[in-house]
């Protein structure tokens, strides 16, 4: 049996009284990249937020590292090793870049190690080193995305959830971002990625899930999905 870092069972969740995702059974293998694709409004982002406890769960459970975390608030999940990069509003605009990174390590107490990590992270994202004293609100879109990921990494997560990390970025920056994600995975962090751009995501990931109308409609290794005619027809359109 594969080593799953996180699993959801029969998960039904939403906001207020509205149910957005239903009966989702999902697993992500440790050390791998799992992608979630699907059309707009299919509930993929909501699912990601549910894994972090930011929505209302009606039914089902979430198990992280062998522990049921369904009822835990987000701040506790963060302390257990989950990291999240939102699609938008993913930095603190009125804090400096350095303060943002410090906030990323908020739950940690190992000061020495944090300082070391800060150095390493700034090595990985040299542009952030230059902008350390600047307010995050003044960064460009790509720089912000980098900062958001860097912040998440400062928390030393075991599992990193990325919500459309490449949305609305220039193609050149997108390539950079995906290179960074690859580096992150290589350093031993498990990644779950939500992507609008299905082809890009599936060719990048190890395992893919396809969401539609709040449910999982297909799953399988990314390359298999891309080779599946039915999938291509339904979600990528004929070429």
């Amino acid at each position: 049996m594969a080593d799953y870092i996180i699993e959801s069972k029969e998960l039904t969740a939403g906001y207020g009284k509205a149910v957005i995702i239903q009966d989702v059974n999902f697993q992500a293998e440790r050390g791998k990249v799992t992608a979630i694709v699907g059309p707009n409004g299919s509930g993929k982002s909501t699912f990601l937020k549910t894994l972090f406890g930011l929505t209302r769960v009606f039914n089902g459970s979430v198990v992280f590292d062998g522990e049921d975390i369904t009822k835990l608030p987000p701040e506790v999940r963060a302390r257990k090793g989950l990291g999240f990069v939102f699609q938008v509003n993913n930095v603190f605009p009125n804090l400096t870049v350095r303060e943002n990174l410090e906030m990323g390590a908020y739950a940690r107490t190992d000061k020495e190690q944090i300082r070391k990590d800060m150095g390493e992270i700034l090595d990985i994202f040299p542009i952030l080193r230059e902008r350390q004293k600047q307010k995050a609100g003044s960064l460009s879109g790509g720089e912000r995305q980098m900062l958001a990921m860097a912040m998440a990494l400062m928390g030393r997560p075991k599992l990193l959830l990325l919500d459309e990390p490449a949305a609305a970025l220039a193609p050149k920056v997108v390539t950079q971002i995906f290179m960074k994600i690859r580096d992150i995975v290589n350093s031993g962090v498990t990644v779950i990625l939500v992507e609008q751009h299905a082809k890009r995501a599936l060719s990048f990931c190890d395992m893919g899930y396809v969401f539609s109308s709040g449910r999982i409609v297909m799953k399988g290794p990314g390359k298999d999905l891309l080779a599946d005619e039915k999938f291509v027809e339904a979600f990528l359109g004929k070429r």
């Binding site: 972090f52 930011l54 608030p73 987000p74 701040e75 999940r77 963060a78 302390r79 989950l82 990291g83 999240f84 939102f86 509003n89 993913n90 930095v91 603190f92 605009p93 009125n94 804090l95 906030m103 990323g104 908020y106 739950a107 912040m151 928390g155």
Partner: peptide
């Protein structure tokens, strides 16, 4: 600035 982001930061 951002309460949700603060929460996910722990």
């Amino acid at each position: 600035d951002n309460e949700d982001l603060a929460r996910v930061s722990g």
